[in-house]
Amino acid sequence: MTIISSYSIKGGVGKTALAVNLAYALQESGRRTLLLDLDPQGAVAFYFRMGSAKKLRMRDADALADGLRSNIRESDFPGLDIIPSNLAYRHFDIVLDSMTKSRKRLRKVLEEFKSEYDVILLDCPPNITLLSENVFRASDSIVIPVIPTVLSQRTLEQLTAFFQAEELPGEILRPFFSMVQKRNKLHREIMAELPLSCPGFLKTVIPFSADVEKMGLRRMPLLAYSTCCEAAQAYRALCNEILSETEPQP
C-alpha cells in the first residue's frame, strides 16, 4: 500500500483538483484507491456528489480507524472509495495531541486499510499543524502543487526548511507546477529557475484550464468527463510519473 498526499501550505493552488483527478487516474489504472479528505471544507465530497462524513469518535487510534472505516463510501467509479470530510476534522490536531506518539498516529491508523487498498490518497488542508506533521510522517510521497508565483515559491521554501529542521525525509517532497499560464512571463521565469534550487520537482506541468474550473459545475473529476483536453492529459501523465517513482518496477 502506498500513501500519497496532496499538500501545500498555501491555499487555492489546486490541491483538491489534484487529489480528485489523481484518485480517478489511479482507479482507472486498476489500483484500489481510497481518497481521504482531511480538509474540513469538504470539497472532495462535493465533487463526488456525496454528503459529509458522519461525526467521528476520535478518542484513540482504534476508534479513529473504526470511525473512518464506517465512513467509507464507494464513488461512482468502481475501485475508488472516498472518506468525505466533516467539520469536526478541524479538531484533528487536538485529538492527535492527546494521543501518545502523536506525530505518527495517522500512519498507524491508515495501516489498518492495508489489505483493502493499493493506494491511499490524502487531501490535506493548507497549513502546518500537528495533522500536517502526521501527514508528513505517514506519506510515501507528498505531491505539492506550486503555482509559478513568488508566494508559492516562498511557501515551498518554508516547507523545505521545516523538513530540514524536523529531520524529515526531504526526498518525499514532490512539487510540480500547477495552474501554469504559458503566456505569463513570470511563470516562465520561475519555472526555469525553481527546479534548479529545489530537487524532486516532477516534470509534468498542469496548465491553467477552464475545464478544471468546470469540475464544480459537473461535480465529477475532470478525467471522468474530458479525456483529451490538455489538463486531463496532464493529470494522467502526472499520475504515471508519480507511480513510476513510488512503485517498484516489474
Binding site: 482507479q27 489504472s29 486498476g30 467509479f77 468502481p78
Partner: peptide
C-alpha cells in the same frame, strides 16, 4: 493489474 477498460470489471 492489466489496465481494465471497463468499469464493471472492478465492481465488488
Amino acid at each position: 493489474y492489466n489496465k481494465p477498460d471497463r468499469m464493471d470489471d472492478r465492481m465488488r
